[in-house]
Measured scan of single mutants.
Amino acid sequence: LTDEELVTMSVRELNQHLRGLSKEEIIQLKQRRRTLKNRGY
Rank of each mutant, 00 (worst) to 15 (best):
I27N: 09
V11R: 15
G20V: 04
T35S: 12
S22R: 08
K30I: 15
R19Y: 07
Q16D: 10
Q16W: 11
L14Y: 05
D3C: 05
R19Q: 10
E24Y: 10
G20H: 09
R12N: 08
K23F: 10
M9E: 01
R33K: 04
S22C: 05
R39A: 15
R19G: 05
V7K: 07
Y41P: 10
I26D: 01
E4I: 11
G20M: 06
L6S: 00
E5V: 07
I27V: 11
R12I: 07
L6R: 00
I27D: 09
K30R: 13
L6G: 00
N38F: 07
N15Y: 14
T8P: 01
T35E: 15
R34L: 07
E5T: 05
E13L: 06
L1P: 05
Q16L: 13
L1R: 02
R12D: 09
E24K: 12
L36S: 02
H17P: 00
E24H: 10
L29E: 01
E24N: 09
R39T: 11
K30Y: 14
L29G: 00
S22Q: 06
E25H: 07
E5R: 09
R34M: 06
L14I: 05
E25Y: 07
G20W: 07
T35H: 13
H17A: 13
V11N: 12
Q16R: 14
V7N: 04
E24M: 11
L6W: 00
R12P: 06
T2W: 02
L6D: 01
T8D: 06
L18I: 09
L1H: 02
K23P: 11
N15S: 09
L36N: 02
R33W: 15
R12C: 14
I26Q: 15
E24P: 09
N15F: 12
T35Q: 14
I26G: 12
H17M: 10
R19E: 08
L36Q: 02
D3I: 03
Q31E: 12
H17T: 05
R34N: 08
K37G: 03
Q16M: 13
I27G: 07
R19L: 09
Q16C: 15
V11L: 11
G40S: 08
E24R: 11
R12T: 09
I26Y: 05
R12K: 13
V7P: 01
N38R: 10
K37P: 01
L18M: 14
R34Q: 10
Q31V: 10
S22N: 07
D3H: 02
R39L: 15
L18D: 01
E25W: 04
H17I: 13
L21A: 06
Y41N: 13
E5M: 13
D3V: 02
E24T: 11
K23Y: 10
D3K: 01
I26T: 06
M9P: 02
T35G: 07
V11S: 09
R39C: 15
L21G: 01
R19I: 10
M9L: 07
K23D: 08
L18E: 01
L21C: 06
L36H: 02
V7E: 06
I27L: 11
R33S: 03
Y41S: 12
R39V: 10
V11F: 09
S10T: 13
R34T: 06
L36C: 03
L36P: 01
E25A: 11
S22T: 12
L29A: 06
S22A: 07
L14M: 05
Q31S: 10
T8N: 14
H17V: 11
V7T: 06
L29M: 07
R32H: 03
Q31G: 06
R39H: 11
G20T: 08
R34D: 07
L18A: 04
N15V: 13
L1C: 06
L18F: 14
E4H: 15
R32P: 00
S22L: 05
I27K: 13
S10Y: 01
Q16I: 13
E24F: 09
I27S: 09
T2C: 04
L36Y: 02
H17D: 00
R12S: 10
L1K: 02
Q28D: 08
T2Q: 03
S22V: 04
Q31M: 12
I26S: 08
N15M: 14
T2L: 04
N15L: 14
H17K: 11
G20N: 09
E4A: 10
G40R: 07
Q28G: 08
M9V: 03
E4W: 15
V11Y: 12
M9Y: 01
R33P: 00
L29C: 05
V7I: 12
G20D: 05
D3S: 02
K30F: 15
R12M: 09
R33D: 00
L14T: 00
Q16T: 08
R19P: 03
S10I: 02
R12A: 12
V11W: 15
K23C: 06
E5K: 07
G40F: 13
S10V: 02
E24C: 10
K23G: 06
L14V: 03
S22F: 03
Q31N: 10
N38K: 14
T8K: 14
K23W: 09
L36M: 04
K30G: 03
I27W: 12
S10P: 05
E5F: 05
K30P: 00
Q16E: 12
V11C: 15
K37H: 06
Q28H: 11
K37V: 07
R33N: 01
M9S: 02
R32L: 04
K30V: 14
R32F: 01
D3L: 04
R34S: 07
Q31P: 00
L18T: 06
V11G: 06
N38S: 09
E13R: 07
E13K: 08
E25T: 09
E5Y: 05
H17E: 03
Y41D: 12
L18W: 05
E13C: 07
L21P: 00
Q28V: 12
Q28M: 13
L29K: 02
L29R: 01
V7G: 05
L14G: 00
R12Y: 10
K37I: 15
Y41F: 14
